[in-house]
Design a protein around this nucleic acid. Structure first.
Length: 203
DNA sequence: CACGGGATCGTCT
DNA sequence: GACGATCCCGTGT
């Protein structure tokens, strides 16, 4: 059952909230350090510039860090959080629209041994890849991958297509860790596949 | 299970 | 010089 790389037009959709939902069920693949890992995306969050106070690109603020968010959809935005964790975002929309989808939870498919080794764990349990900081560690993703294009041939990271997740299988709730974002804090832009155990802890 | 704190450093003021 | 789009471990219940 061969999977296919998502085409560029998937990422160019100007509605980042819709893309955030459409990414649920898709397959994230990394080919890093001569190891291939595949995992199903089960939790995401949408960040929409310029009006979203939780977004690093709030008011279209352009800095060295946020520059990549203004690239064409399909690029990757990775940044260091709390000096400890690398967080992985998919940039979406046309060039100059600084939207992004944060990946928050994965369900392992292939490369489980590699993921366990990278995490220093012995047995597979949800904490292996449930959470934005730990899923990057399991997949081998770091700041080095900031700015790469998921749709480019031979990129070390890409996303494969899969059947869309049915709407009634998706649970929407407020985003995590954005208490500073005032009225945007309550926007229900965190999406998860209801029955999956591989999502980060509920708020 | 709910909190509370420490780790740790790039980014922006 | 302050502060994170987090995680893990410790303590108390």
């Amino acid at each position: 059952m061969p999977s296919k790389r998502l085409p560029q037009h998937f990422y160019l959709n100007p509605d980042v909230v819709q893309v955030s939902k459409q990414l649920l069920g898709k397959i994230l693949v990394s080919n890093i350090g001569a190891k291939v890992c595949r995992a199903r995306i089960v939790e995401t969050e949408a960040y929409r510039a310029p009006e979203d106070k939780a977004s690093h690109a709030y008011e279209n603020k352009r800095t060295n860090r946020t520059q990549v968010m203004f690239e064409r959809g399909g690029h990757v935005y990775v940044y260091l959080c709390y000096g400890v964790h690398h967080l992985f975002n998919v940039v979406t929309g046309p060039e100059e629209a600084a939207h992004a989808v944060l990946l928050r939870g994965l369900e392992p498919i292939d490369g489980l041994e590699t993921m366990l080794e990278r995490r220093g764990m012995n047995i597979a349990k949800p904490q292996l890849t449930a959470g934005p900081g730990v899923l990057t560690k399991a997949m081998g993703i770091t700041k080095e991958h900031n700015g790469i294009d998921l749709t480019k041939k031979n990129s070390p990271i890409w996303i494969e297509d899969a059947i869309d997740c049915p709407q009634d299988a998706i649970l929407a709730s407020p985003r995590v860790g954005v208490d500073y974002a005032e009225e945007c804090t309550s926007w229900p832009w965190r999406f998860r596949i209801k029955e999956s155990k591989w999502t980060s802890p509920a708020k």
